[in-house]
Simulated assay, not measured.
Amino acid sequence: MLMLLKKRSTIISLILAVIFAASSYYYFAIYNSVRDLYVSSDYIGYPTGKALFSNAELVVVGSPLKDFEDRELHLSRFSNGALEDIATFTEIDVEKVIKGPEEDTTNLKVYEPIGVYQTFKGKERIAFEGYTAMKKGSKYLIFLSKNTYGQYSVINMQSGKFNMDGTDHEDMGEDSHNKQRIFAELKSSEYLQ
C-alpha cells in the first residue's frame, strides 16, 4: 500500500512538472513572442520636403510621453472578426510648433499607423508601410494632418516623422535614402528656421 502511494505521488509530481514546464514554455516562448506583420496602405505620399511641409496642417517638434506598450491602442474589427484597423495614440510633449494652430498642441495625441495586440499565438505588431513607432525620450520633427475622425495623424508614413537627436535607430526604416533626402531638404530650407 505504501509503495502504491509513493508511485502515485511520483506520477502526480511528474505530471505537474510537465504541465508547469509546458505552461512556462507557452507563456515565455509563444504568448509573449512578437510577430511583425507589414500591411500596405493607400496614402498620399509626398516625395519632397516642400510638398510634405505644404500639405501638413500641423508641424511640431516633440517627444512621446509614454513607452509604446503603455499607449492607447485603437483596434476595430469587421463583423466577421477580421481586423479592420489598428493604430496607436501617442501623447506628445510639444517642444516647438513650426506650423499650425498652437492651441491644438495642448494634450496632443498623435495617431500612429502601428499597433500591437495579443493573440493566443503571441503578440502581433501590425505596421502600415513599414512604419516604426516613435520612442519615448526621443525627439522628433512630426508632420501631421487631421484624419476623417478629426484626429492628428502622421502623414507620409515613415517619412512623416524624423528623429532629430539620433536616439531612434529604427527611424530611417526601409526607404532610408528617400527619407534622408527629404530630411536634408527640410533642414536646409526656410521651413524649419
Rank of each mutant, 00 (worst) to 15 (best):
Leu4Trp: 06
Ser9Ile: 13
Ser9Ala: 15
Thr10Tyr: 08
Ile11Arg: 10
Leu16Thr: 12
Leu16Trp: 09
Leu16Arg: 10
Ile19Met: 13
Ile19His: 04
Ser23Trp: 09
Ser24His: 07
Phe28His: 12
Ala29Asn: 14
Asn32Thr: 10
Ser33Cys: 05
Val34Arg: 07
Leu37Phe: 11
Ile44Tyr: 01
Lys50Asn: 11
Ala51Cys: 01
Asn55Arg: 10
Asn55Ala: 13
Ala56Asn: 11
Val59His: 04
Gly62Val: 07
Ser63Phe: 04
Ser63Leu: 04
Lys66Val: 04
Asp70Ile: 00
Leu73Val: 02
Leu73Phe: 00
Leu75Glu: 11
Leu75Phe: 14
Asn80Ala: 11
Leu83His: 05
Leu83Met: 05
Thr88Ser: 15
Ile92Trp: 03
Val94Trp: 03
Glu95Met: 11
Val97Arg: 01
Lys99Thr: 06
Thr106Met: 08
Leu108His: 04
Leu108Met: 10
Val110Lys: 05
Tyr111Val: 05
Ile114Phe: 00
Tyr117Val: 01
Phe120Thr: 04
Phe120Trp: 13
Gly122Pro: 03
Lys123Ser: 09
Lys123Val: 02
Glu124Trp: 02
Arg125Pro: 02
Ile126Trp: 09
Tyr131Asp: 10
Ala133Phe: 08
Met134Lys: 00
Lys136Tyr: 02
Gly137Ile: 03
Ser138Lys: 02
Phe143Thr: 03
Asn147Glu: 06
Thr148Trp: 06
